[in-house]
Design a protein around this nucleic acid. Structure first.
Length: 752
DNA sequence: GGGGGCTATGGGGGG
DNA sequence: CATAGCCCCC
């Protein structure tokens, strides 16, 4: 047996890897080699004779699973492909495809994303004549989601005095009925929302038809769970079903860090970690406390911050790195200025520290904060990529085609049906649709059946008949053709492509391009035999494709080797690391967020989030905050975040060296008592007194202009319109003298 | 039935 | 600020 890999591990790590049998918990601080332990542990299992297909490894993202497999493959070779590795949602969806019949679902069930869930709920609330002000969709959905995550069925919900009491108090006493209706509508539509993928799997194992439970207990003789601190009660319950029973070897290994638990909002509870020892008395616990990632200052700051939390497992992260680089703290007057300064410092990191773009990340609390950084990075011609926010699959034109695909595979998919029954326009308006759904509700039949049976004027009737025929035709094709062939056919025969072609606007063309990109993606899925990574027979069907894309996020995308700066929320950054990390927007009401301050344990959760943020950095960590920023169209003023104060002053370097005119020591709240003076931005920028910025439309090719940063330049050309106007300007004597400058932001003085 | 424009409202994180 | 939903008019 090749065991050299064990030499790559420290003592605790090696014990965690080689204690293969029985329950194991690994408490792993940030940068402590957690992934290494997980991958080697699996490799070790395989080397010891366990079949890869007997191993279930649940990770937080598909990307993490893929990378883990790649690393395992380096030790054990191709066998690694047979592992069951993926997210809870994707693995369970795969199992449910096979077992759906047992719980009254079709095997080609649809997966509702949160937009689908919302729109279904909106319809239900309307149909039940409830006041939408008392039943805001978001809150209703959150409540339903949390009920499911705690295994509370609509029936149990209605019997629960606490839950019902809260609803009555909040003026929404009928929430239980909305929940009930939502569940039955989903089921009737053959659709599962994200929570159902977990909940229905639990239901399957609980009801245990044909002893299906035993089948999976045998199949998964070793279970590993990454990021265990972020699992909820439902996920934990499923794990227990799989490994806790009479005479079970209890081969479960969970890896996590209570200090990095940041998903309480979707039901994650660190009680799972705390209870684990009681549930499995034979538990072996290993604590990985040596940090191999970050410099001394960063590790120390993280420790000092996290000790403020009440509830935690005792541990102290340490490092033997001696680097004494301090953490930089940057204060700016506004959010725009924050963007500019971060971009400035990125240039400096690239030049002085030779850090490539892909080793730099800007992290923020909310996705909406990405905008200023995008604008400034574009100005500096630094390539970047924004993760999160509106993903490719959430774009309208993409959702439209996918709705056609979904409806073709599953005719009962109501959300898909509602989306496209009148798109492209075919004369089915609201009154017709109301009639159809009302008829469906009265007769308790699916919308699809109602389309054909509902009494309607002849014109609408024949239109609908054609529509049904078309979808049935697509469905038939989907049975014989592969995903790409049928998607291409649907895109053109549905009229989607023609509809987009007729739109000659820039956006219209972009939409068509996106649609083509989607088709390319489907083609890749259909033709690439490496795409499926499981031990099931190759399946290139449309249904499988739809299942895959419903569960991918842009985090999961293959690294395309491009060298870009990463912009993402801190939540998305979990598990990642970069040489240089900027944590931006460190202000009260932003981070910690306003909502969190009102929640029980909200601040502690935000603090763990801050802990995650700062521990992403290997060498350079920069914290920034702005005195003012735009939020929802209004300017707001926030105090610096309390988390800044929690970092000992001797770890901080609060002078900003490069822009001498902007540097001033940052004074913390403690010393100023929230009384931040607003320096005059004009003075601060050091703008020459006689400087007079021209308006964007005044800049024309051939002009000589003065730029505050680059100096004198000659305008070579101007392209784009309005806010998107960009000038190409040649500046003598700077690196990359030819610059593309967004006129909307640039301050240029015309010199002749 | 369809389109345009106006207003009110919400406002976090993600599979 | 963005967007959903509403009203009004064709």
């Amino acid at each position: 047996m090749a065991l050299e890999y064990l030499n790559d591990l420290n003592d605790v790590q090696r014990q965690a890897v080689t204690s293969t049998d029985g329950p194991v918990m690994v408490i792993a601080g940030p940068g402590s080699g957690k992934t290494r332990v997980l991958t080697y542990r699996i490799a070790h299992l395989i080397e010891s004779g366990v079949y890869p297909e007997q191993i279930l490894a649940l990770t937080f993202t598909n990307k993490a699973a893929r990378e883990m497999k790649e690393r395992i493959a380096k030790v054990v070779g191709d066998r690694a492909r047979r592992l069951w590795a993926g997210t809870f949602h994707s693995i369970f969806a795969r199992i449910l495809r096979v077992e759906a019949g047992h719980i009254g679902y079709p095997s080609n069930f649809s997966i509702y994303d949160s937009a689908d869930s919302r729109s279904l709920l909106t319809r239900i609330i309307k149909e039940m004549n409830l006041d939408k002000n008392n039943y805001p969709v978001g809150s209703v959905l959150a409540r339903i989601s949390s009920a499911k995550s705690n295994l509370i069925t609509p029936k149990l919900y209605a019997q629960d005095n606490d839950l019902m009491g809260v609803d009555r108090f909040n003026n929404r006493p009928m929430l239980y009925a909305v929940y009930n209706k939502y569940v039955s509508q989903c089921k009737q539509a053959g659709a599962m929302d994200f929570d159902d993928l977990l909940y229905r799997l639990f239901e399957l194992l609980q009801k245990n038809p044909e002893n299906v439970l035993d089948k999976y207990r045998r199949r998964f003789s070793y279970v590993l769970v990454d990021e265990f601190q972020d699992t909820n009660f439902l996920q934990y319950s499923i794990l227990k079903k799989l490994v806790k029973y009479a005479k079970s070897p209890e081969n479960i290994c969970v890896v996590g860090d209570d200090a990095q638990s940041i998903y309480a909002f979707r039901g994650a509870t660190i009680d799972n970690i705390l209870n684990f020892q009681h549930e499995f008395p034979n538990l072996s616990v290993f604590k990985l406390e040596q940090n191999y990632r970050s410099t001394h200052c960063i590790v120390e700051a993280a420790n000092q911050v996290i000790v403020q939390n009440k509830k935690q497992i005792q541990k102290k992260i340490w490092t033997d790195k001696l680097d004494s680089t301090k953490i930089k703290l940057v204060k700016t007057v506004s959010d725009t200025e924050e963007g500019r300064r971060v971009a400035d410092m990125i240039v400096e990191h690239k030049n002085r520290h030779h850090i490539p773009n892909k080793e730099i990340a800007i992290l923020y609390r909310t996705n909406a904060q990405s905008r200023v950084f995008e604008e400034q990075l574009r100005r500096y011609n630094i390539s970047y990529k924004v993760f999160g926010g509106l993903s490719f699959y959430q774009r309208k034109e993409i959702k439209d085609l996918i709705a056609y695909l979904r409806l073709s595979v599953n005719n009962y998919d109501e959300e898909a049906l509602m989306r496209i029954v009148n798109y492209p326009k075919r004369g089915i308006g609201n009154s017709t649709l109301d009639a159809i759904s009302q008829y469906a509700a009265e007769k308790d039949i699916t919308l699809w059946r109602s389309l054909m049976e509902c009494p309607l004027p002849n014109k609408a009737k024949s239109t609908l008949k054609d529509f049904v025929k078309m979808i049935e035709h697509f469905g038939k094709k989907a049975e014989s053709l592969n995903a790409f062939e049928v998607a291409t056919l649907i895109a053109s025969q549905s009229g989607l492509i023609d509809n987009l072609r007729s739109d000659n606007s820039l956006e219209g063309m972009a939409r068509l391009e996106n649609l083509t990109a989607l088709l390319d993606g489907i083609k890749e899925f259909s033709e690439n035999d490496e795409a499926t990574d499981d031990n099931l027979p190759e399946d290139k069907s449309l249904a499988t494709y739809l299942q895959n894309i419903a569960l991918v996020t842009d985090l999961d995308e293959e690294n395309t080797e491009r060298d870009y700066v990463t912009l993402m929320s801190i939540h998305s950054a979990k598990g990642l690391e970069f040489d240089s990390v900027f944590v931006a927007g460190l202000e009260e009401n932003i981070f910690p967020s306003m909502q969190a301050m009102e929640e029980r344990d909200g601040i502690d959760e935000e603090r763990r989030l801050f802990y995650v943020a700062i521990t992403r950095a290997r060498k350079l960590l920069t914290l920034s905050f702005a005195g003012s920023r735009y939020r929802y169209g209004k300017i707001v003023y926030n105090d610096p975040s309390r988390f800044i104060e929690e970092i000992p002053v001797d770890l901080l370097d609060s002078m900003v060296p490069r822009r001498a005119e902007a540097s001033q020591p940052v004074r913390l709240r403690a010393s100023v008592r929230g009384n931040f003076s607003q320096p005059n931005p004009q003075k601060k920028m050091g703008i020459p007194a006689d400087f007079e910025a021209a308006l964007p439309h005044q800049i024309q090719a051939g002009m000589k202009v003065l730029h505050l940063k680059f100096g004198e330049g000659k305008v070579l050309s101007v392209d784009g319109y309005n806010d998107a106007k960009v000038a190409t300007i040649f500046f003598q004597g700077i690196s990359n003298p030819q610059r593309r400058i967004m006129l909307k932001f640039a301050k240029l003085q015309i010199l002749n």
